[in-house]
Design a protein around this nucleic acid. Structure first.
Length: 597
RNA sequence: GGGCGCGUAGCCUAGCCUGGAUAGGGCACCGGGUUCCUAACCCGGCGGUCGAGGGUUCAAAUCCCUCCGCGCCCGCCA
C-alpha cells in the first residue's frame, strides 16, 4: 500500500471531505462496538490510495491487539456499524481490513470543482508567512556547464518551484565564487596577451569558432592552465599572488568582469532549460563588507579556538559529531587570509538573517563541508540551521565522475544541440503542415523537456550514469510523453471549441472505469505537491506527471469525447481538468506546456 | 581505516521518512491495435532470492545489527 503521500489533507484536496467522513464514521462505529478508537489513531493507520479493495483502507491488526479482539471480527463489526454516507459507495470488511470506496460521482464532482475553480493554483497550498532561500547551481565561472553540474540546477530549480507552490515565498540565489584559485586561474591567463601564453595552453585553446559563447571561449584554456600550474612553480606563485590580491580587496580590474562574462554564457544555457535566479551573490562581497572579519573575530574568541604555531586559527570541532579526522577546522590561514568555509559562514549568517528557511542544494562531495559549516554556525552563536538537499553525482559509463579536466564531461550545450536535432526530426516526421518557426519552437521545448525530465525523474540520492540514448529518449517515462498528453488534451479542447470555460458538467455521466481512475489521479495532486515540498523529493512530481499522462492516454483510447452523446460536455470538462492539472505539474517541472506537437 | 550515500527483473526506476492485503512504472523482447478526438499513443505477454545473513513484529523492500559490493569525502583547496 502506498502511503507515501498520506498527509492531513487541506481545503484544496478533493479527498479532504471523504477522509473526514471516514475518520468520523470509524470513531462512531468503534464507540458502538465498544472499542476506544481515537481519531488520531485512525488517521495514523488509514491508508489512502493504495489498497487493492478500495480507495481507503484501515488495517486493524494493531488496533485489534490493543483492544484484545480478533482483527477479522473487529473489522467486520466496524464495517457493519459504519454510519451510511452518500459520499461513500461501499464500506466492506475484507479479512483484517475495512475498505472504503468513495462514491465516484461525489469524488468527481469535488475534484473537477476544485481543479476548475483553482486553475493554476490547483495543487498549491495556502500562502504561508515563512520565506525561504534556495541556493543552487553556484558553479564556479570557469567554463561551460557539464551535465553533472546541471543536475544541481535542475533539482534546485524544481525544488524552488515546488516550495513556492506549497505556499512558501522563495528567493533563489546563485553564489558566485570569485575568491578562489579557480577564478584566479581564469584571470591569470586572460590577463596575459595571447602571445605570452605558454605553448601547451595556447595549443589547448585553439580551434575557436566565430561567435562562440563566452563560457566556451573564456573557458577554453582552463583545463590546460590547471595542468600547467601543477608543473610550474613560478606560475603557481603568480596565481597565489592573485588570490592574495582578491583577499586584500584589490584584484585586477578585469577579474569580476571575466567571471561575469563566463557566467553570462553559462546562464544562457540554463535559460534554455527555463532556469533562472532571483539573486546573484558574490563571495568577495563578504570580504569587502567586513562580515568575514567579523566572523573571524567571533571564531577567534571561541573557547574552541586554537592558535597554530604559524599564526593560523583553527576551531576544535570535537563534539560536533564530525568524522574523527575532521576535528580541527582551519578558519584563517597563517598569512591572515580567510578560507572558503569561513566566507561561507558569513554568507549563511546573512541568509539566515533574511529568510525563515535556508536551503542549499549540494553535491555529495560537499557533504562534509555542509556539516563543517553547520558546526561553525553554532560556534559563532547562530541558533538556526540551513537545510541541505544532497544529490549524487552523474557518472560516465566508463566509470568515474564527469571531469572537465579529465575530458569525460558531457557538455550541456552539446546535449541540447543533439536533443534539438533529434526533436526536429521527430516533429518533421509527423507534422508536415507546420511553419518553420513552429517546428523550431516545438523541437526546442521537446528537447529541453526531455533533458529536464530525464534528470529530475530520479531521486536525488541515487547515482546516475549518463547515457545518451536514455537522455535523448522521447518515449515512455519521459518529458515528451507528458508534454504529448498535454498537447493531446489541448487538441481535443481546441476541436471542441472549449479551450476556455466555463465547463458545465454532470458528474453522474462520468461513470466509465477509465474516468473514475483518471479522476482519482487528478485528486492526488495536492498531496503530491505537499509531499515533494516536505521531503525535497522532486522526482515525485515527475512520477506524478507521468501517471496523469498515462491515465489520460488510456482514457483517450477507451472513451470518445467529442463524438460522444449526452456525456460530451461533461467529458470536455474532465479533459479540461486533466489539461489544467497536467499543465500545473509541467510548470513545477519547468517543462513547456505545448498546445500542439 | 572513519563518515555519508547507494544496491529492487537483461537495463533504468517508484515504493523506504510514517511496517500492512497479489512490490508499481519505463526500456528492451514477443504478439496485437490507426476508414474514429494527434500512434511521441494504446492493449496483451515475458521477466522479481527487493545485495547477503541475522533480529524486532501478528506482519519487513520498508525498522535495528552484521557483512558484501559500488560511489563520494576525510587540504592552511573550493
Amino acid at each position: 500500500m502506498d502511503r507515501s503521500e498520506a498527509l492531513p489533507s487541506g481545503p484544496t484536496d478533493p479527498w479532504d471531505p471523504i477522509v473526514k467522513v471516514v475518520v468520523a464514521g470509524l470513531v462512531a462505529a468503534a464507540t458502538e462496538v465498544g472499542v476506544a478508537l481515537p481519531a488520531e489513531t485512525v488517521r495514523a493507520q488509514l491508508a489512502l490510495d493504495g489498497g487493492p479493495q478500495g480507495d481507503l483502507a484501515l488495517p486493524l491488526h494493531r488496533l485489534a491487539q490493543v483492544a484484545g479482539r480478533p482483527a477479522n471480527s473487529l473489522a467486520a463489526e466496524l464495517a457493519a456499524h459504519f454510519p451510511p454516507s452518500p459520499i461513500l459507495s461501499s464500506v466492506v470488511a475484507t479479512g483484517a481490513y475495512v475498505n472504503f470506496v468513495a462514491d465516484s460521482a461525489r469524488l468527481t464532482q469535488e475534484t473537477l470543482d476544485l481543479v476548475l475553480a483553482h486553475g493554476g493554483r490547483y495543487g498549491s497550498g495556502p500562502a504561508l508567512p515563512e520565506t525561504a532561500c534556495v541556493e543552487h547551481t553556484s558553479a564556479n565561472p570557469t567554463g561551460p556547464f557539464h551535465i553533472g553540474r546541471v543536475r544541481n540546477a535542475i533539482i534546485g530549480d524544481t525544488f524552488a518551484r515546488i516550495l513556492r507552490a506549497s505556499g512558501v515565498p522563495v528567493t533563489t540565489q546563485y553564489y558566485i565564487d570569485d575568491m578562489g584559485r579557480q577564478a584566479a586561474m581564469i584571470t591569470w591567463i586572460w590577463s596575459k596577451p595571447r602571445a605570452e601564453w605558454p605553448d601547451p595552453i595556447r595549443r589547448a585553446a585553439e580551434g575557436e569558432e566565430v561567435g562562440e559563447k563566452p563560457d566556451r571561449h573564456r573557458g577554453r584554456p582552463y583545463p590546460a592552465v590547471s595542468a600547467y600550474l601543477k608543473e610550474h612553480e613560478e606560475a603557481r606563485e603568480e596565481v597565489a599572488e592573485l588570490v592574495r590580491s582578491l583577499e586584500s580587496g584589490e584584484p585586477p580590474a578585469r577579474h569580476r568582469a571575466l567571471a561575469q562574462e563566463i557566467l553570462d554564457g553559462m546562464l544562457a544555457s540554463l535559460a534554455r532549460l527555463s532556469i533562472s535566479f532571483d539573486e546573484f551573490v558574490w563571495e568577495s562581497d563578504f570580504v569587502k563588507d567586513g562580515s568575514v572579519e567579523r566572523v573571524l573575530e567571533r571564531l577567534r574568541g571561541s573557547p574552541h579556538a586554537v592558535r597554530e604555531s604559524n599564526g593560523a586559527w583553527a576551531i576544535d570541532t570535537t563534539g560536533y559529531g564530525l568524522p574523527k579526522e575532521s576535528t580541527r577546522v582551519v578558519v584563517q590561514r597563517g598569512n591572515g587570509t580567510s578560507l572558503y568555509v569561513t566566507r561561507d559562514v558569513a554568507y549563511h549568517l546573512q541568509k539566515l538573517a533574511r529568510f525563515g528557511r535556508v536551503v542549499d542544494v549540494l553535491g555529495q562531495d560537499h557533504q562534509l563541508h555542509a556539516r563543517t559549516l553547520d558546526a561553525l554556525l553554532t560556534e559563532v552563536g547562530e541558533a538556526r540551521r540551513p537545510s541541505f538537499v544532497i544529490y549524487q553525482d552523474i557518472t560516465v559509463p566508463e566509470g568515474g565522475r564527469m571531469s572537465t579536466r579529465g575530458g569525460s564531461a558531457v557538455w550541456l550545450d552539446h546535449l541540447l544541440e543533439e536533443a534539438v536535432t533529434r526533436a526536429r526530426g521527430e516533429v518533421l516526421a509527423r507534422r508536415e503542415d507546420l511553419a518553420e518557426a513552429d517546428v523550431d519552437r516545438i523541437a526546442e521545448s521537446v528537447a529541453t523537456g526531455a533533458i529536464r525530465y530525464h534528470i529530475v525523474r530520479v531521486a536525488p540520492e541515487k547515482p546516475v550514469v549518463f547515457r545518451w540514448e536514455d537522455a535523448l529518449s522521447f518515449e515512455g517515462r519521459s518529458g515528451p510523453f507528458v508534454q504529448y498528453a498535454y498537447a493531446r488534451a489541448s487538441s481535443v479542447l481546441r476541436k471542441g471549441e472549449a479551450l476556455r470555460g466555463p465547463y458545465p458538467f454532470d458528474a453522474r455521466l462520468l461513470r466509465d472505469p477509465e474516468e473514475a481512475a483518471l479522476v482519482r489521479v487528478l485528486a492526488r495532486f495536492p498531496r503530491v505537491v505537499a509531499y515533494a515540498a516536505r521531503t525535497a523529493h522532486v522526482h515525485a512530481v515527475a512520477g506524478y506527471a507521468h501517471d496523469v499522462a498515462d491515465r489520460f492516454n488510456r482514457f483517450y483510447h477507451a472513451v470518445p469525447v467529442l463524438k460522444s452523446g449526452e456525456e460530451r460536455t461533461s467529458r470536455i470538462a474532465l479533459v479540461a481538468a486533466v489539461r489544467q492539472t497536467l499543465g500545473n505539474a509541467l510548470d513545477l517541472l519547468g517543462l513547456a506546456r505545448l498546445e500542439a506537437m
